[in-house]
Design a protein around this nucleic acid. Structure first.
Lengths: 351, 351
DNA sequence: GTGAAAGCGCTAACAC
DNA sequence: GTGTTAGCGCTTTCAC
């Protein structure tokens, strides 16, 4: 009969248990020998407090390693110290888009210097009300809407509950008079197109973004304005979707329509990169046969052997400006209805 | 004497003001003719309640358009319903990295089906304690650490306050016995390297990630294991940093050392893409002269005329698994110390 | 300058 | 099943 040994179980799976005690304000007050209110005042930097008490409380805080409970603080203050970023669920590769990623990152960075915190809110398609409920449920002091699509207007009534700032102008003027932070898309594409003109292009095509987005419409308008100013034709337009593949396909369509153009303004760097890949495949040289300018100074504009001549829209700054605008709104400060973030033409080798 | 007309000012800048009143639970209860607790019970789906009262409360909720105040609820429940994602500030292009972006997105997506919310926490370099204070200040029910660097261990003591899950195994085994979600990096790189062997490569080099990261170390180990298994040399190693530029530079160094190798395992798709650009510039053909395999099925692996043969680490799933793990930990459930996310070899044309 | 007391809006025993 | 009563941990009048 063999002896059965039950091995001491070395668990490779466990449950988590808290091992720190979390001190409260009352404990700090007790240790400092003051009342809870006084301790609170010290923590909130109230002016009229004896240096002695300040020191006592500070010491107690350090000793206990106390950190205020935000939830309780927020309930008392009737605030949340949270900013929600609303991002569209259907945009599958939302974060893959360097534009959004950069904006969010810069907003998060800016907020990290304040007491606010960024919350990611994936707007559910299945339950669109969920987002609104969340935002109205005292979950955020303000919201930051990144999508540019039709559904945007849905978020407008939101603005009656909490301050909302849109990154990019929604297409249709909205009742709610939204707050907007954006670049001047018309001006930006005008600059990019003018560069082609000045470089000597005689026939300039464009690949646009979706015309249901303000950035789509505005960038064609800028292109058109620049060409009219130069007395050139404005017929070579192909509508696309801001994507790499879309740009490549639109370039094919353009080439089917005409082999005459010597300049292209693509409304996004992704589309420009896609178009250039098509041109190369067709044996066309950039910029010699076709000069290309675009908007966005992102990975697609930089990371190739052919750095694009492009309008940098400073997405890194944009996120911070949006966040700042929102906070000023939250603080009841006066804010412009629309804030333009400056842009800058970057000369590459594509034009 | 001219009449002076003061134009009615059309303000282009304004302050935001709230126009909705926010109903409270008490209002709902009053309208439904029940006590606050009963109303609360209905809202929280308590079992034993008369259908009649449920209906009454529901009606009141609808009528008032009531939505519970989370802050108050969380204070009472002593929870926050928030998950914090800790991201390293110094990783300038953090979001630009599709790996992180994809994980965050999938985590956010998963959480959107729960009552939890994702908070972005930029770990300040200037004030490293800030992050810890935040996390301990009742701001999150759990944290999700994305960085892989040395400083990781700093976050471990965090795990005494709230559950923490690491995306990717920290290099040194840590005292705190952290919870980890990762792919099996050794196995993944073994698979990728074996593919080169099976394809007939006789001399296989590798470009590694930083050896201060577990993913860096493990992936060399897998490469070495596969080569030893095949009886091949394991001397052609160049250490790099997972970046495109780093990969390109490492490839140059490799070529200086030897022109003999006919296979390369690059530990990340970005490095693979960089290396391939170097090879092309040197007139070497991929895969004919040098076959290349790597890890990551991201933009760098897909978006070129040369789709890479790579190990997909399913980042889209990884984020969800991490989030799920964290929530189970929060709920006091039993969780494996380390959870491996499955990987999959994707055959491209680079090898 | 500091303390006492009254909430913030909700949940959760505990009674009935 | 439902109401009553205490809080959750903090801020904030209002006295002194």
């Amino acid at each position: 009969m063999s002896e059965i040994t039950t091995p001491r179980e070395t668990p490779d799976h466990t449950t988590w248990k808290q091992s720190d005690v979390v001190p409260t304000l009352d404990m700090v007050a007790a240790l400092a020998g003051v009342s809870r209110s006084t301790a609170s005042r010290v923590l909130n930097g109230s002016p009229q407090i004896t240096q002695a008490t300040v020191d006592a409380v500070t010491a107690a805080v350090d000793q206990l390693n106390y950190v205020p409970n935000r939830v309780a603080r927020n309930l008392a203050r009737r605030s949340t110290q949270m900013i929600a970023v609303v991002i569209p669920e259907h945009t599958a590769a939302f974060f893959a888009d360097p534009y959004f990623a950069s904006i969010i990152q810069s907003a998060a960075r800016y907020l990290s210097s304040t007491d606010y915190t960024l919350t990611l809110l994936v707007a559910s398609e299945a339950d669109p009300d969920k987002t609104r409920r969340f935002l109205r449920g005292g979950n955020a002091d303000g919201a930051l809407i990144l999508s540019h699509h039709i559904g945007d207007r849905d978020y407008l009534n939101l603005a009656r509950s909490i301050p909302v700032v849109f990154a990019g102008r929604p297409l249709e003027p909205m009742d709610g008079d939204p707050y907007i932070v954006d670049i001047d898309n018309v001006a930006a594409s005008k600059v990019a197109t003018r560069h082609l003109v000045q470089r000597g292009c005689r026939r300039i095509a464009t690949i646009t973004g979706p015309l249901e987005m303000s950035a789509g419409v505005d960038r064609v308008d800028g292109w058109r304005a620049a060409l009219e100013e130069a007395g050139q034709e404005t017929d070579l337009i192909e509508v696309s979707d801001f994507s790499y593949e879309g740009g490549a396909a639109a370039a094919e369509r353009l080439l089917e329509r005409s082999r005459e153009f010597d300049g292209l303004f693509a409304a996004s760097a992704k589309m420009a990169a896609g178009a250039i890949s098509t041109f190369k495949r067709e044996g066309l040289r950039v910029p010699d046969d076709i000069a290309v300018t675009t908007i966005d100074n992102d990975f697609f504009a930089r990371n190739s052997d052919l750095p694009l001549t492009t309008v940098d829209q400073h997405t890194g700054m944009k996120g911070a400006v949006i966040a700042e605008t929102l906070i000023r709104l939250i603080n009841g400060e006066t804010v412009e209805r629309i804030t333009y973030v400056p842009t800058e033409l970057i000369i590459g080798t594509s034009a």
